[in-house]
C-alpha cells in the first residue's frame, strides 16, 4: 500500500506527518519511508536512518559519434527541450536541458547516437532503529530536474507489496509532485487554515483528482481559524483525517528535531486510527 503525503504549500508539516505516521505503524506493519522531496530531503532528521546503500541517480543523455554523424540535424529537430543544437557540421549537447526521453537516439537515421549516463543526484537507503526501511533521493545542487531522481528512487527502493510505503512528496504542484503521487493508493494532503494553505491545497487536490487518487486532509496549526477552509472541505466532501492544534510546545519540539509522536505520545493511536481509515477508504475504492 502506498500513501503519498503532499500539500501544495511548503512548510505545512508534510514531513512531520509522514514521519509520525511511519513511526506509529512501525511496530505493526512493515514500513517503508521514501523521501521524494529530492531538492531538500530532510525526513532523515526525524527518522535517523543508518544509510548503508547508495547508488547514483542518472539521466541518459545522447553522445554523438562524430564519425557516423551526417549532420542532418534530425536530432535537433525532434528534441522538444532544445538540448541539442547544430553548429556547422557538429551537434552540441546541453546536458542540463536533456530530459532523457531518447527521441534523438530513436530518430537518428545514421545510428550515430549512443546514450551515456549523466549523474544528477544519488539514491540512499538504510534502516531506522524502529525497523523502518528508509530511502531518499538527493538531487545535486544546480541540477534542474528532480523528476527522474524521484522515478528512480521509487523503482530502486524495492518496497515489498505488503509493506506500507509512505512517500513524502515535495511541496508545490508540479511534475515532481505528480511523479511522487503516480501509483499511490492514497493522497494525504496536509494543509493549514490560512488563505495560502487553502489556495495551494486546491492545487494539490486538483492533481489527486486528475490522477484518480482518493484523498483526505490533515489540518495542521488548527485554531488559526480560517472558516473558508472548513467550508471548502465540506463543500468538496473531503474527509478531515486529523487536526493538529497550533502549539508552541510542538513547534519547539519539532525545531529540536523530535517527531510529533515523541512530543505528544497520545497522537500515536490517532495516527494508527487514521491509517485504518485510509486503508478502509482504499479498500472501498471511494473516490476523493
Amino acid at each position: 500500500m502506498q500513501i503519498a503525503v503532499a500539500s501544495g504549500k511548503g512548510g505545512v508539516g508534510k514531513t512531520t506527518i509522514a514521519a509520525s505516521l511511519a513511526l506509529s505503524l512501525a511496530g505493526e506493519h512493515a514500513v517503508c519511508f521514501l523521501d521524494c522531496d529530492v531538492e531538500a530531503p530532510n525526513g532523515h532528521l526525524y527518522l535517523n536512518p543508518v544509510f548503508d546503500r547508495q547508488t547514483p541517480a542518472v539521466i541518459k543523455i545522447p553522445q554523438i559519434q562524430a564519425e557516423r554523424c551526417s549532420s542532418c540535424g534530425k536530432c535537433v529537430e525532434v528534441c522538444q527541450f532544445h538540448a541539442l543544437a547544430k553548429v556547422g557540421r557538429s551537434i552540441l549537447v546541453f546536458a542540463q536541458l536533456c530530459h532523457g526521453c531518447g527521441s534523438c537516439t530513436w530518430n537518428c537515421p545514421e545510428g550515430a547516437i549512443s546514450e551515456i549516463p549523466n549523474p544528477i543526484g544519488s539514491l540512499e537507503a538504510g534502516q531506522t532503529k524502529e525497523g523502518i526501511h528508509f530511502a531518499q533521493g538527493v538531487l545535486t545542487i544546480s541540477e534542474p530536474m528532480p523528476t527522474p531522481v524521484i522515478r528512480q528512487l521509487k523503482r530502486w527502493s524495492q518496497a515489498s507489496e505488503d509493506a506500507v510505503t509512505i512517500l513524502d512528496a515535495p511541496p508545490g504542484a508540479s511534475c515532481s509532485v505528480v511523479e511522487t503521487l503516480r501509483g499511490s493508493d492514497y493522497a494525504l494532503l496536509v494543509t493549514e487554515p490560512t488563505p495560502f494553505g487553502l489556495h495551494d491545497l486546491k492545487q494539490a487536490l486538483g492533481i489527486a483528482r486528475e490522477m484518480d487518487i482518493p484523498a483526505g486532509v490533515v489540518i495542521n496549526r488548527d485554531g488559526v481559524r480560517d472558516s473558508r477552509m472548513d467550508w471548502f472541505l465540506s463543500q468538496n466532501k473531503l474527509p478531515i483525517m486529523m487536526r493538529i492544534p497550533f502549539s508552541k510546545t510542538l513547534a519547539a519540539g519539532i525545531a529540536a528535531g523530535k517527531p510529533l509522536i515523541e512530543i505528544w505520545p497520545e497522537y500515536q493511536p490517532r495516527f494508527r486510527n487514521m491509517f485504518r481509515q485510509i486503508a478502509e477508504s482504499i479498500a472501498k475504492g471511494k473516490p476523493c
Binding site: 535537433v76 532544445h82 543544437a85 536541458l97
Partner: peptide, 27 residues
C-alpha cells in the same frame, strides 16, 4: 525550456556574424 538554445540555433541558421542583447544565458 531551452529558450536560449532555440534562439541561438535560429540566429546561427540565419548565418549571423553578431548578436546584440542585454545578456546571454550560458547555453
Amino acid at each position: 525550456g531551452g529558450a536560449g538554445v532555440a534562439a541561438a540555433q535560429f540566429v546561427i541558421d540565419q548565418k549571423a556574424s553578431a548578436a546584440i542583447s542585454g545578456d546571454f544565458g550560458p547555453h
